[in-house]
């Protein structure tokens, strides 16, 4: 197992380096970060020169890449191009915000989806099953930005009708969130709508997966054996059916989670949440490769780690799978 992990990490390192070079090249050649400056009247020539020297903008791309690597390793990913501000503090801040949002959304989605999937499978073709199937299709078909906007509009309409602000519709916290517990509650309050939006698509996917997996297991021979042994139905379902049915879902969740940590751009934009997705989009918009690369490195590492976690977990849960 250890050998397997090490080998995977080595391959991943190669992938990471390759990805970093490609992305750096694309961002660099896609546009001139000084474009806006150059056509703005009265911009000081000396200042523009300073920037060009500081960020080696007159050098060819491979040299600039090398400079970036140096900066990334020795100077915590370096500083932004125009304003020369350190990147890492901002990145940590947005990372934490995204983590909060995504973690809560995923956990809730899993809990609900597993419940729905199991119950649907056990009560196949019932009213519950059909309505959950419909809900899943709707959830998958609904565009995220539309759902987010509809929720905001709904909340505002409620406010206009009753004077009650049931949920805040933007940002991470209110003007005076308070300290300690009050801050936490305020933050949770602000995350309710974004979490709902994120959950919908995930619940739809996960519950379908869970249902399919559960159906397959529930009709299997070993479940019949378990019943034949005289086990109570609840025990049969939980110990024999449910645990086995959960395995493919665990893999899916682990893989999905890695990607989510790169940020959920649309949700973050509509709700103005200070997260990784928004950070990336803004950085890209300024054609500044440094923050984009920093974001990429973190996101790629997360994805690689979680891919590995998915594989290892699968191996742990299913003894038929062995890694050498």
């Amino acid at each position: 197992m250890l050998q397997y992990v090490i080998r995977r990490l080595l391959y991943s390192a190669v992938v990471l380096v390759l990805a970093s070079f490609l992305v750096f090249m694309f961002v660099t050649v896609s546009g001139d970060p000084l474009a806006a400056l150059k056509i703005t009247p009265n911009v000081s020539e000396e200042t523009v020169q300073n920037i060009i020297e500081r960020k080696h903008l007159d050098e060819p791309v491979p040299v600039r890449y090398y400079e970036w690597v140096k900066d990334a390793l020795t100077n915590k990913f370096g500083t932004t191009l125009l304003t020369d501000e350190p990147i890492l503090p901002d990145l940590w801040r947005v990372m934490k915000n995204t983590l909060q949002l995504v973690l809560v959304a995923e956990l809730l989605a899993i809990l609900i989806a597993v419940g729905i999937g199991v119950y649907s499978a056990l009560r196949q073709y019932s009213v519950f099953d059909y309505s959950m199937t419909t809900f899943s299709f709707l959830g998958l078909a609904t565009p995220v930005f539309w759902l987010a906007l509809m929720l905001q509009v709904a909340v505002v309409q409620i406010y206009l009708a009753t004077g009650r602000n049931v949920f805040p519709i933007a940002n991470l916290n209110s003007v005076d969130p308070g300290e300690g517990l009050s801050f936490v509650i305020d933050r949770a309050h602000h995350l309710v709508l974004p979490v709902i939006v994120l959950m919908v698509a995930n619940i739809a996917t996960y519950s379908r997966y869970m249902r399919a997996s559960m159906l397959e297991v529930v009709n299997s021979d070993y479940v019949r054996t378990a019943r034949a042994k005289g086990l109570a139905e609840s025990r049969v379902t939980m110990k024999h059916a449910f645990r086995n049915a959960l395995i493919p879902l665990v893999t899916l969740v682990a893989l999905n989670f890695g990607t989510l940590l790169g940020g959920v751009v649309v949700t973050e934009t509509v709700f103005s949440l200070d997260g990784m997705g928004l950070y990336f989009v803004n950085a890209l918009g300024t054609n500044d490769p440094y923050p984009v690369m920093a974001w990429l490195m973190i996101t790629a590492t997360m994805i690689i780690i979680f891919n590995l976690v998915a594989d290892i977990t699968y191996g742990l849960l299913d003894p038929r799978v062995r890694y050498d």
């Binding site: 070993y222 054996t225 395995i247 849960l317 299913d318 003894p319």
Partner: peptide, 10 residues
Amino acid sequence: DPMTSLNPVL
């Protein structure tokens, strides 16, 4: 069929 009649993860 004893292969499918036994729970593979226990």
